[in-house]
Structure formats: C-alpha cells, structure tokens
Design a protein around this nucleic acid. Structure first.
Lengths: 128, 128
DNA sequence: TCAATGTTAGGAATCATTCCTGTTTTTATT
DNA sequence: AATAAAAACAGGAATGATTCCTAACATTGA
C-alpha cells in the first residue's frame, strides 16, 4: 500500500479531475500552482508508481514523443487525431475475456491506439 | 518514391525475412555483418522513412523502452508476455471499418498492445 | 558521362526520463 | 505529542535512445 503525501495526492486528484491526457510536464505545471516547490522528478516518480498500482494509465507517447497519462482506468481505447492533435477516449472495441479464452493467455493490460482524422477535422474544408 | 541504397534495401530485407520484433540496435547488429561500416544513424533514419512509407510498422516501445519494428504490415495486434519477454503476433481483434463508420472518423493506423502471460508460461509450474 | 539530388558515416547534440544524495515528511507506536 | 523507522522529497547530475549536422559518397535520369 502506497503512503500518502501532499504531492502524490495532488497528482492523483489532478488526473482524476480532468478528462484530457496530459504528459508529465503538463501535470508538473498544474501542480506547481498549488505546490510551487514540487520537483519534476517527484511527478515522474509518482506517475510511475500510480501506474504500477493501477490507479492511473500510461497511454503511450503521442506524436511529440512524450508519455501521456489518463486518470480514468476503466477499459477503453484512444484515438489520436493527426490533424488537430486531440486525444479522444473511445469505448472498449474488443472483448478481452473472449480473447483470453480463445488464445489461452492471461491479459493484464490492453491498450489500443488508433491514429487518423477526427470527425470535426473531417468536416472541415481540408482534404486528407 | 524512395530511392534504393544498399543500406536501405538490406534493412528492409532483414525485416521482411524475420518474424520477431527487433529494435534498432538488433537490426544494426545484424546488418553490420553484411555491411560492417553502416552507421546507427542510418538505421534509425531508414526505419523512420520505411515506417512513414508504410513498408514496415513501428509497434511501440517494449518494457525496455526501445521502439520495436515489424516487417509485416498486414493488420494485426501484438501480445507481450511479461514473463518470458516474447512478443507474439495475433490477428485483427476488431473491425476497423465498422469503427470508422460508427464514429465518423478516418483511421490511418491501429495498434493494439496486449500485455500478460503467454500460453507456454501459464502452463509452467509458476504462479502468476 | 555529368550534374543534381539523395544518402551515408561519424560524431555531437537533444531532451525526456531516471538516478543520486542529503533533507524532510509521513506513519505507526508509545 | 514525542519518537524512530520508513518512505518521500527537492535539486541537480547522469543516462541513453533518438535526432541532427556536415562533409564525402552513391544513385538517378537525361
């Protein structure tokens, strides 16, 4: 069981309260407003610990090469729009249970990353 | 259209001929046996170009933090065994076309990474 | 064959992330 | 609330995969 600390609690609360998919820097910048002397290393360490505990998700690096995090751990996939850069949540798109039985494997973690053009961008005048 | 070079051709041929999921270093080490003076930078540059052209796939970093590549581009997903470290190919596990229509998006790239314990490891005596 | 353009080797630079060290905070126990 | 042990912290240095740079070399099309 993880101990509590002001810093760790703030990081988790921040991720839980938002619905985007920030990277370590973005979280660092936000937490700094409440805890001005928090260090970037602390943010990284706690993101790693929280992900390991299953409290949050690492959703893999975006185009910019930086790891992204998600405070909402129910099973879902992510869609990265290559035009506007937005990351969207989409529901479960396959049946994990079914797959485990069919392949005789045990799945601990499943992450699907889709890349393409989102609805909004498709409806703009631009061609893709 | 990409020009040909001994180095680029060797990298593509190497990836096409193998069925594992090597990282840049592993490819570098192999190609070096044929072309001893190839440089690591050349390997990286060509992997990036080949992936951009759709000739090969980047399948996302493994546990060791290194990007992996796949010379076989038909749509399929990957399963990483957390015990033995093996990466397995598994077929398509969801219907991309269906998803595009349902969500009104255009999908250029889809990659699913599953992590867990493979069949072989599950059948060993160890508990997971 | 030649010029234009693309590609290479080698090494330096980048930069997200991890590691290290001495200090501070939290927690569990009186 | 005092205390000791364990965990967490700040700050900065180190790491290391990947990218960038430049001068030399190779490929292509005419």
């Amino acid at each position: 069981m993880l101990k509590h600390s002001k810093q760790r609690d703030a990081i988790l609360a921040n991720l839980r309260s938002r619905y985007d998919h920030p990277n370590a820097d973005m979280i660092f910048a936000n937490i700094r407003e409440e805890i001005p002397n928090i260090s970037l290393g602390t943010v990284y360490r706690n993101l790693a610990l929280l992900a390991e505990m299953g409290e949050i998700l690492k959703i893999g690096p975006s185009e910019d090469g930086k790891e992204r995090y998600d405070g909402h751990t129910h099973p879902h996939s992510h869609f990265f729009c290559e035009n506007c850069g937005e990351i969207y949540d989409i529901g479960e798109i396959f049946d994990t249970r079914n797959l485990e039985e069919k392949l005789h494997i045990c799945i601990h973690e499943a992450s699907t990353t889709l890349k393409g053009i989102c609805k909004g961008c498709l409806h703009s005048q631009k061609q893709f």
